[in-house]
Design a binder for these strands. Sequence first.
DNA 1: GTTTAAAAGGATGTCGAAGTCCTTTTATGG
DNA 2: CCATAAAAGGACTTCGACATCCTTTTAAAC
Lengths: 338, 338
Amino acid sequence: MKSNHVTLKDIARILELSPSTVSRALKDHPDINEETKKLVKTFAEKVNYRPNALALSLRRQKTNTIGLIIPEIVHHFFSSVISGIEDLAYGEGYNVMICQSNENYQREVIDTQALIDHRVDGILVSVSKTTRDYNHLRNAYDNGIPMVFFDRIVEEIKTDRVITDDFQGAQIATSHLIERGCKNILHLAAPQHLVIGSRRKEGYLKALEDHGIKADEDLIVKCDTREYVFSLQQHLMKLIEQKHIDGIFAVNDSTAIATMQALQSEGIKIPDQIKVIGFGDGPNADIAYPPLSTVEQKGYETGREAMRLLLQRLENPGIEINFSTKVLTPTLKQRQST
Amino acid sequence: MKSNHVTLKDIARILELSPSTVSRALKDHPDINEETKKLVKTFAEKVNYRPNALALSLRRQKTNTIGLIIPEIVHHFFSSVISGIEDLAYGEGYNVMICQSNENYQREVIDTQALIDHRVDGILVSVSKTTRDYNHLRNAYDNGIPMVFFDRIVEEIKTDRVITDDFQGAQIATSHLIERGCKNILHLAAPQHLVIGSRRKEGYLKALEDHGIKADEDLIVKCDTREYVFSLQQHLMKLIEQKHIDGIFAVNDSTAIATMQALQSEGIKIPDQIKVIGFGDGPNADIAYPPLSTVEQKGYETGREAMRLLLQRLENPGIEINFSTKVLTPTLKQRQST
DNA sequence: GTTTAAAAGGATGTCGAAGTCCTTTTATGG
DNA sequence: CCATAAAAGGACTTCGACATCCTTTTAAAC
């Protein structure tokens, strides 16, 4: 069993024509006789001829492939992004080459290089958490490959971007808790060196301020994973009792869900005694008990927008378009936890 | 900003050498003087020269890319599979081209064709639920592209396979329910034209038989998605009442979880009144209320094994190796729903 | 009967890399 | 001093598709 792809030359040899003629017959070139065209087309169909994409790309200097660098496919947000990108890309005749950095800087560098080596027409990137140096991306950029950053952007590199308004999202979430009657709201926060960490905290503080509630530094706890919640369980319980916590805004859904589970194991009723809200709206929110209210982060739209911005550049080569930043506003998705 | 990739010819022109010399200098060919080599290498490094992967693939008749066709990336099982595949592939110098069929036959056909067009060296496939015709895959096969099926295999095409022992998994799950005291066990099944659908049903039946319980065709309901559960809710409730159902084995976790939610909304206590077990063990099982007992399906291992089988063929071209089927045995993961 | 052009198709070069073959220069042996 | 070979590097070809340029045949025009 060996590779046996049919080429133009093969067809030409068998039909006793020149490769040029076969090529033109297949693309309805006026110089070719109708009879000949029919003959060639019928035969090509019969032997299942398909032009070699590599040869085409090499010749055309265009691969019709775009590269995607993404931290982790397992996260629902990112897999939704992929769908958004693909749906648009496919429609326009582009393929997507997906690379998973696994939140690993080294891998991200290798992936970027692989995409450049394959001469992708454009790159969509969401950088890994561990990436501090951006030379690999700048390199792609310098090679003239259009790039669009989404979600985890690199501020140092000026290009198109698609981001979620984390500040406003957090504000919406916190305001919602306040409107549902919460007075003492705990915020489980992400590390402050991450943009989402600080922005979401700021939104939380802004909402408190807007409603005339004094912020309390003790009510902001660094805790952004499921495991973290359980290891802090004792501490959190003490805090809840001392501060009469009646609402919790967690920086992401899985932390929010773990928190609900921890509280329930201590006999606390949700939402009656404490209301909980998350951020992100993956499918977990629906599965949790009670279903989790959260702020919906639009993965599919993020992908679509990023691809749209990229296509704009690819379809208008040579035309200078000012870089734009698309900000998506997350929306409240109320369920039974608030 | 235009594409400005450096080529061998560019380097040759600037250094006033021939392209051949530059090519050989870069690969340490003995015919080239050390001085020249150093000159070329230094310069190549400086201008960030990277060979064009397209040109290389065309010349070598090998792309070092393998194609992956997968139903839906959002599913935890499949994204784990991807990780398993990538970890092995990267190490061996292969890139992975991921295509998502979205459980859509048409898309799967297009994806397969795209992979063939790109002349991937091999293909890993898990077929979509809606695929009934396998000509697109047979086509790839006839083109001499090695294939490995995983999880959702096609029995008609003889090639390497990696599957989970669905029969045994279902048997383990059902036996577990019986051992926990269930007498009337409902099975929410996948379509029977899917191998996982029929095998899991058979495992369920075998477990009943082993424990001397008579099977009842009415207790096998085709229902394999979250949405399906809610649309069948009335019907299921009637069935549960009439048949005194005390245990449910769902063909996958999300169906199991949705079922628990549906039952709970009708006031039924889990596991006290009805015990529920799923299949797959994604991260959702831990989040569900109560945490879902399930049969652990090994996504990462599945991907690794599939890639391993494919590599075996790619690294031994021309050598005939008998097709093998690797069967992974799932294990019981008991939580609080049983 | 010759000019002219349209119709139909072939030959050649290009994209980028690299293997095969060929040429030039220099050194060594007899 | 010539023969021979090693050292160093260039020319040519190939992978597959296709665009550009070139050739042949035939029919129309004068």
